[in-house]
């Protein structure tokens, strides 16, 4: 819904700059997550499966409860965990700013549009904020902030391959996990290829081209990338076959969870169920 606004804010920058910006954002995010996951901190020492289960339970609880206080409480726990795991506050505030910008735009009209008792009248404009409107808008924002913080804490304290392996512990089929793993790996290859192509073009283009031509350029880049993708997939298939792949992928089993890990997961499950159905 905020797409339109997003366009207006960014319309002055060229598509090359913006695309490069977004790509570098993805690379930065994965790199800083790798760095923070390698640091010593509270959650870095916890089994990835426990963290995945824990994050999922807390996100679910924050999404299920109608209570502002509980959502905020879980949010506070998330921030506490982030700090205990030595995540930088700056990264969290960047995350929150993005989330607030996106969901804030969506939540704002709800203040006035939700039917209910008048609660406050905006001076000058004369619009009325309803009690229900205020409650629903703040609940939405609290939920979004809390859940995105939990997701970020999970990714920033767990190496991504560990997270991938943890997914298997929760009955995700092997083929899905292998697919996700291969995709993630090749995303970075395509990012490199794209950067090479775009940066070459950017340096060659001093002046601004007409929109149609810029569009043609972007589309051609996508086309080249796609041809490369198909060629690559054929070669990767051969490389997999050469090492014995025949359609079913076999992977190593994980070490079983320790009793303490089970205890942590169970305790959290009981706690979450308890606060939801009290």
């Amino acid at each position: 819904m905020s797409e339109g606004l997003h366009h207006l804010v960014h319309r002055r920058k060229g598509f090359l700059d913006r695309t490069l910006g977004e790509i570098s954002h993805v690379v930065d995010r994965s790199f800083s997550a790798e760095l923070s996951a390698a640091q010593g901190g509270l959650l870095q020492g916890v089994d990835a499966r426990v963290k995945l289960a824990g994050a999922a339970l807390l996100i679910l609880t924050a999404a299920a409860t109608p209570s502002h206080a509980l959502v905020a409480g879980i949010g506070a726990v998330a921030v506490g965990l982030a700090l205990a795991s030595r995540l930088r506050l700056g990264e969290l505030t960047t995350l929150w700013t993005g989330v607030l910008l996106f969901s804030g735009v969506i939540a704002l009209p709800a203040l006035f549009l939700t039917p209910g008792e008048p609660w406050w009248r905006v001076p000058i404009l004369g619009w009325t904020v309803t009690t229900t409107g205020f409650r629903t808008a703040t609940l939405l924002l609290a939920r979004v902030l809390t859940t995105s913080t939990l997701g970020s804490v999970l990714v920033s304290t767990t190496p991504w391959h560990a997270l991938l392996r943890a997914m298997r512990a929760f009955r995700l089929p092997v083929v899905a996990v292998v697919l996700i793993g291969m995709t993630y790996r090749y995303i970075f290859l395509f990012i490199q290829t794209t950067l090479d192509m775009l940066e070459g073009r950017q340096s060659r283009l001093a002046g601004e081209l007409p929109a149609a031509q810029r569009r043609g350029m972007a589309v051609a880049t996508v086309g080249v990338l796609m041809s490369k993708a198909f060629e690559l997939s054929g070669d990767v298939h051969l490389a997999m076959q050469a090492r014995g792949y025949r359609g079913e992928v076999h992977v190593l089993d994980e070490a079983p969870l320790r009793p303490l890990d089970w205890l942590m997961i169970s305790a959290l499950t009981v706690l979450c169920a308890g606060v939801l159905w009290r």
């Binding site: 993630y184 790996r185 690559l232 990767v236 490389a239």
Partner: peptide
């Protein structure tokens, strides 16, 4: 890049 297709 063809030969190395696994996560780690």
């Amino acid at each position: 890049d063809v030969q190395l297709f696994c996560p780690t």
